[in-house]
Every structure is written in structure tokens, then in C-alpha cells.
Amino acid sequence: MSELLAAREVTLAYDGATVARDVSVAVPAGRVTVIIGPNACGKTTLLRALARLLAPKSGNVVLDGKDIRRYGTKEVARRLGLLPQAMTAPFGITVADLVARGRFPHQELFRQWSPADEEAVQAAMRLTRVTALAEREVDELSGGQRQRVWLAMVLAQQTPLMLLDEPTTYLDIAHQLDVLELCRKLNREEGRTLVMVLHDLNQAARYADHLVVMKDGAVVAEGAPADVLTVELLARTFALEARIATDPVSSTPMVIPVASLERHD
């Protein structure tokens, strides 16, 4: 199993406050990798480092066998797309305009709209089912529609590797499934390698080929969900007493919470 992207003993810090120390993690090519962990464990920070948005204090991030800092910034953007947690749709922008912005890394001063740009945007809107919304303003859309539009923007970027930071937050359960099914489709049908940060353990178990569990800025377990998700691990990392059953739909591990082991004084 070859790795497309890897962090090698990276130490990550914001303004001197260390968030993660000596973390190594590998993203297998052609798979869906899901990162889980309790709040403030460094998931988002790790994702930002993998997408070269945060420079490690030590260690390095390797993309396709080469240090990510050795690529030009547009070159990285053609290989790796990231959907951050927080973004702002400019006031009054239409869906098609927003999705078209995903083509920036493929454009140049005098190559502003190639046939490939047009095709990529149309395909991205089709896959995320927002073609009918193309002329609508993004502000007018529902949360679920808006999230699909943002996904379409990153899709139009046509990167073999996509990193998604909690793509299901703020969505109701049906729209969460909708987005996750779309992600799986991107992986299975388009062959894209996906890395997602997710909050819901059962969704993570269901959609991950490769699960990475983090706690306190360190990776505590890594592997197939069925191997990784154990009662002992849940107690240790999430301070959660739980049982593990088999998901009757997907036959993946299903976490049934029993009690919090956290002492609330």
C-alpha cells in the first residue's frame, strides 16, 4: 500500500504553544483515511500541516515522495485540495462563480478559462448535484446545499488528494450521510484519495478504510476500523465507557456509549 502523503515526526505549534509533538502519519493512496479524536487533540492542526497551511516546527510533510515545501504553492494546489472548517462565501456570489474559483491553480494570466476548466466545473457541479443551483446566490442556499457547493469547489480543483476538515458539521443527519456518501463515491468511482476529520465515531468506522486516532497531539492508534476501535481504546482516548457491536447496515464496528469516564468535579 503506497502512501501519497505522510507526516514524518512533525511538531506543530501556534505562537509557541505546541499542539502536536513528533507525529508521524501516512495517508495510503486510493483510500479513505479518517482522523478522529477528542476535542483539541490536534486533528485540524495536523490536517493543516498536511496541506502545508502550517509549517512544522520540526519534521516534514512528504507529498509523492518529496518534501511538500519543495513544491510551488500552485503545484501543491494541483495535487492536494483542502476544505477547511471555516470559509466565507463572498456576499452575492453565485454557485457557478464560487465553484469556478476552484480552478485557480490550473489558470494563468493568459489561460483564464480553458476547456478543461469548463469541464471540471460542470463535472464537479454534476457530481455534487448543484448544477440546477448554478445561477443562485450562495447566501440563499440551505446549509446542506452550501456544503455541497463548497465540496464542488474543491472537486473542481481536480486534485488526486482531498483533505476535508469536518465536512459534516452543522448539517442534520440526512445531509451528513449525503455528504459522506458523496465522499465515498469520489473515492470509489473517481479514485480520489481522501482524508477526513470526523466527529462521529460510527460514521468514521463506516466510511474509513484507514482510521487514525489522536489524543493530546499524538497518534495513539492507526489501522482498519475493526482493528482499531476497541473498548479499551475508547476508554483511553475518549474517556468513554462503551460497548462495541457490529453495524447491521455496513458490518463495521458500532460504538454504543455507556457512560463518560471523565470526572466532572
Partner: peptide, 9 residues
């Protein structure tokens, strides 16, 4: 957003 712009190159 800065992160989105940076990831776009």
C-alpha cells in the same frame, strides 16, 4: 478565508 486561498495556491 486565508486557509481556503492558500490551499488554492
Amino acid at each position: 478565508g486565508d486557509d481556503l486561498a492558500r490551499q488554492l495556491g
